[in-house]
Design a protein around this nucleic acid. Structure first.
Length: 268
DNA sequence: GATCTATGTAGAT
DNA sequence: TCTACCTAGATCG
């Protein structure tokens, strides 16, 4: 499910499965029916991800998809089965078909609208064209907490609640510190780490952030396997012992989102 | 069966 | 800072 790695993984999959050939597009649920009929039968020129946004580019326009909290794609080999549940968009290619359920956004956009979305996003660690300095300019001049800045898609695109919590833990940085307290070296380390972690996420489809020496098979603790699918240090581990120092993991709601950190490894 | 929760964002207040 | 929205799986009773 959806942080940036999920969308890049989907873009890669959709490019491979459906790119360069005509596709059938429909909206069994009906909410996307008019736009679906516009692109139905057209060639899917390219699938692309930017941050948490996915684009299906056609000659005639681009389908813009944002999964929000609950959106999902399911995929299977042909033949396509009757729709189950609320299927916003169904895409049928030469060998496979995929159903989109529960997206925050699914809309047909013109090129200037696509450009506008990209323009308001910060650098995406999963894109080769990313300029991390742009994010640091925002961060290093802000009194806002690092926790909020890392989740702000206009500062940094693609990082969500799991990567935010985990990358701050991995660098021993307290989430409540103001952006301006971060020095350029720390920022470079965080950025490079996000590139590594998120690329691994694209490959595996899960978020794993725990270093080898802290893994359950090394330390003897039980593997955890949260619903997001990977081994993590602090995300959703409230009250459980920190994997490094044993202190109970802290939790607080910040701007309507759950924030997790280790009070000892990430001192204020 | 009802209720809760979630890796997100936009728009109103 | 709040509320609405999109859905399905987990949890409660």
């Amino acid at each position: 499910m959806p942080e940036g790695h999920t969308l890049h993984r989907l873009a890669r999959l959709h490019q491979r499965r459906y790119g360069g050939a005509p596709v059938r597009v429909s909206s069994p649920q009906g909410k996307f029916a008019t736009e679906a009929s516009t692109v139905d039968g057209q060639v899917l020129v390219r699938a692309e991800a930017f941050g948490k946004h996915l684009f299906h580019h056609y000659e005639i326009g681009s389908v813009h998809i944002h999964l929000g909290l609950y959106g999902t794609f399911t995929e299977a080999r042909l033949p396509a089965l009757p729709p189950v549940g609320q299927v916003r968009m169904r895409l049928i290619g030469g060998t496979h078909w995929t159903d989109l359920r529960g997206p925050n956004r699914c809309e047909l956009l013109m090129p200037d609208q696509v450009d506008a979305i990209k323009a308001r996003l910060g650098p995406d660690p999963l894109r080769r064209d990313a300029k991390p300095d742009r994010a640091f300019e925002r961060i290093s001049t802000s009194r806002t907490s690092l926790a909020a800045l890392l989740m702000d898609q206009s500062v940094l695109a693609g990082v969500g609640n799991v990567y935010r919590a985990e990358v701050l833990f991995r660098h021993g940085i307290n989430p409540m510190l103001p952006g301006k307290s971060l020095d350029p070296v720390q920022w470079k380390e965080i950025w490079d780490d996000l590139v590594t972690l998120m690329r691994a996420g694209v490959r595996t489809g899960r978020i794993d952030t725990v270093a080898d020496e802290h893994l359950p098979e090394v330390t003897g603790r039980a593997p955890r396997q949260d619903r997001h699918g990977g081994e993590v240090y602090v995300y959703r581990r409230t009250g459980q012992p920190c994997l490094v120092c044993g202190t109970p993991v802290a939790h607080q709601e910040l701007a309507g989102r759950n924030l997790y950190w280790c009070p000892v490894c990430q001192p204020a």
